[in-house]
Design a protein around this nucleic acid. Structure first.
Length: 644
RNA sequence: GCCGGCUUAGCACAGUUGGUAGUGCACCUGAUUUGUAAUCAGGGGGUCGGGGGUUCGAAUCCCUCAGCCGGCACCA
């Protein structure tokens, strides 16, 4: 064995970690909860079969956290089965911020049950029974679980690959089928745990199967860490875009239009600021903006394949007496853009042919999926389609990738996750086309040098895609940008260009969106900035607030001057105390407060107070406004100014 | 769509065992001219999410529909 300090020692094969630790020192054995062999966590009492680098993991080791949580899940399951005999156990994995356990029970749990469950968990933890592992035969395991009425476990045993052992972990009389590893005893879980929420979840993630009752919990090594985590959740809730949207008077939703946004003046200003930003970025990248109809005959959607795949989630317009055709409210922009490409003969010299649209699409999303601005039924895509030859795929994908990442950087999103989604089960086109598009897209992704992960089988029905994923305030991931390679739809809709040999060739089409949905991006961005939008995005950039009415005329002068510089400003000349005005505009998250009183009026200055700071700075009016106007220049235009 | 929870004034929330609604902020009116996070006083505002039922009587109990919240499933 190799030890962390570099020392080597020989042991007979089959010696356990516990024995090695005991031989070194009893106290080491006592404070160790698990071991790592060549960096891989294992049960402390596992016999070691071959040479390895061994580390003894204490409870405070960061690597022990997942064990604490996993053990907590087992303790939770024992507690639940003790309290409600007859409840079946299923699985209980560790997740990003804790763990959960799925149970099958006729009556689902409610948060009111948490008190009793947590109490029982503490009892089990206090009992401090050792976790012991046994390896059973498949038949034995299935028989035991079947006799216990644990039918889900029987199914799990069957799902374990033939080359893997059936491991049973016992904690006193209670046991569970589990891959492990676990700590040495239930007492190591400690008391810094908390049950968080209950939820329904389908068995094996399949909506055709049983609905299980899931209990989420979290656990930490120390109480302070748990407290800090709970505090952090509380803080994150304050950044919720739905809450900020109301507080900042940006938008609202109402029952008559579920999943559709009512944008208020300030929210719409923000929306348009974002739209104009993208418009400039894509114009600079060679896209031409277009606009296609909102309602298109269903025949086109049949031809594109959307009708077959998504009919249930499309809004269809009721046929009229004088025209019985069924029109579809567009759920996508691609078929429309293909019509624009098809109109007029295209030559290979026209490629790449790039058209973009701020396309408002409607999709009948399942009611349970709706979520503020992040998942809506009516949204605006910054959509574009790029018609190219097969040879141009890699080059164009890389260009779009660079553009997307550069755009995200302008909003301070540095840690964008990229996912590569390949062919789904339900798809159009032959495998040869999929081979081509997947290979080309992956090659471009590799060439970009960015880290990425595979999203198996999650591609669009017409082609593989890259997803650019951003995270909201409470840690949920949302797809924003996307690049999709499509070797199917142009052909289905009869698009072609004339190549250098005068023959008709079907183009490859890239689908691309950078924000993805302007609604979703706006929501994520509000949370990202916690409502403290940078000046260029803020719908109301400054308020000129008077101290007394003596400064009213001067305030009007200052307002007019600010407006001449293109700043979005308002005046607050109300007969209110300055304290009151400061508080109100701070709560409304106005980035800049320009306070003017007698003194400022006399000196033609302003007292500047920035959101989030109590500091004041008095500056000459013109200099202050010029500085603000300079700060309010969008990042792309600023680069253009600086780059000359 | 599925499981659970929730829905009372513009917002945040109270409302005891069923006896036809309150508080704070906001809003309106008046007074106050104020130096960087709440000036004082007065006033108006709710068919308690919609519909149905039980009851002498329902915000409160039951049914149903809708929306929202948390997950799951879905996400072109």
């Amino acid at each position: 064995m190799t030890f962390p300090d570099g020392a080597h020692r020989q042991y007979p094969p089959g010696t356990t970690g516990l024995e090695i630790a005991k031989a070194i020192s009893p106290s080491l054995a006592k404070r160790t909860v698990a071991m790592a062999l060549d960096g891989k966590l294992a049960d402390f009492s596992d016999p070691i079969a071959q040479d390895a680098k061994i580390e003894f993991i204490g409870r405070d080791d960061p690597r022990a956290l997942e064990l604490i949580r996993h053990d907590a899940a087992h303790v939770l399951a024992e507690a639940v089965q003790t309290l409600w005999p007859g409840t079946q156990v299923t699985i209980g994995p560790v997740i990003e911020n804790g763990f959960y356990y799925d149970f099958f029970r006729n009556q689902p749990f409610t948060p009111e049950d948490f008190g009793a469950i947590e109490k029982k968990m503490r009892e089990i933890i206090a009992r401090d029974k050792p976790f012991t592992k046994e390896v059973w035969s498949r038949e034995e395991a299935k028989k035991v679980f079947r006799d216990k009425g644990e039918l889900f476990k029987v199914e799990l045993v069957d799902a374990i690959p033939e080359d893997q052992q059936i491991k049973i972990y016992k904690q006193g009389d209670w046991f569970d089928l589990c891959r492990g590893p676990h700590m040495t005893s239930t007492g190591k879980v400690g008391n810094a745990f908390k049950l968080m929420k209950v939820a329904g979840a389908y068995w094996r993630g399949d909506s055709n199967r049983d609905m299980l009752s899931r209990i989420y919990g979290t656990a930490f090594a120390k109480q302070e860490e748990l407290d800090a985590y709970l505090k952090q959740i509380e803080e994150a809730e304050k950044r919720d875009h739905r809450k900020l949207g109301r507080e900042m008077d940006l938008f609202h939703f109402q029952e008559e239009a579920p999943g559709s946004v009512f944008w208020h003046p300030k929210g719409w200003t923000l929306f348009q600021t974002l739209e104009n930003y993208i418009r400039r970025r894509q114009q600079a990248a060679g896209y031409a903006e277009v606009n296609a109809p909102q309602l298109i005959d269903s025949s086109l959607w049949v031809a594109s394949g959307h009708m077959a795949t998504f009919r249930e989630s499309m809004f269809l317009v009721e046929p009229r007496e004088e025209d019985d055709r069924i029109f579809v409210v567009k759920p996508m922009n691609c078929p429309g853009h293909i019509q624009i490409f098809k109109n007029g003969l295209k030559s290979y010299r026209d490629l790449p042919f790039k058209i973009a649209e701020f396309g408002k699409v409607h999709r009948f999303e399942p009611s349970g999926a709706l979520h503020g601005l992040l998942r809506v039924r009516a949204f605006t895509q910054d959509d574009a389609h790029i018609f190219i030859t097969e040879e141009q795929i890699a080059d164009e994908v890389l260009k779009v990738n660079d553009l997307i990442l550069s755009i995200y950087a302008d909003f301070g999103f540095a840690d964008v996750r990229i996912k590569f989604s390949d062919r789904p089960d339900k798809r159009i086109g032959d495998d040869a086309a999929w081979d081509t598009s997947e290979t080309a897209l992956k090659a471009a992704l590799e060439a970009s040098g960015r880290p990425w992960t595979l999203n198996k089988g999650e591609g669009a029905f017409y082609g593989p895609k890259l997803e650019y994923v951003l995270r909201d305030a409470i840690g949920r991931d949302w797809q924003c940008g996307t690049i999709q390679v499509d070797l199917n739809m142009p052909g289905r809709l009869g698009a072609f260009y004339i190549d250098e040999h005068s023959s008709k060739v079907t183009p490859v089409m890239l689908h691309r969106a950078m924000f993805g949905s302007l609604e979703r991006f706006t929501g994520i961005m509000i949370e990202h900035y916690a409502g403290h939008l940078p000046l260029w995005l803020s719908p109301l950039q400054a308020v000129v607030a008077t101290i007394t009415s003596d400064a009213d005329d001067y305030a009007r002068t200052a307002l007019a001057a600010a407006q001449r510089l293109g700043l979005r400003v308002e005046g607050d000349l109300r007969n209110e105390k300055i304290n009151y005005k400061v508080r109100e505009h701070s709560l409304a998250k106005v980035p800049v407060l320009l306070v003017v009183g007698k003194k400022e009026a006399a000196e033609r200055t302003v007292s500047i107070r920035r959101l989030g700071s109590e500091k004041q700075q008095t500056m000459p009016l013109d200099a202050a406004l010029a500085a603000l106007a300079a700060e309010a220049v969008p990042p792309d235009l600023r680069r253009a100014q600086q780059g000359g």
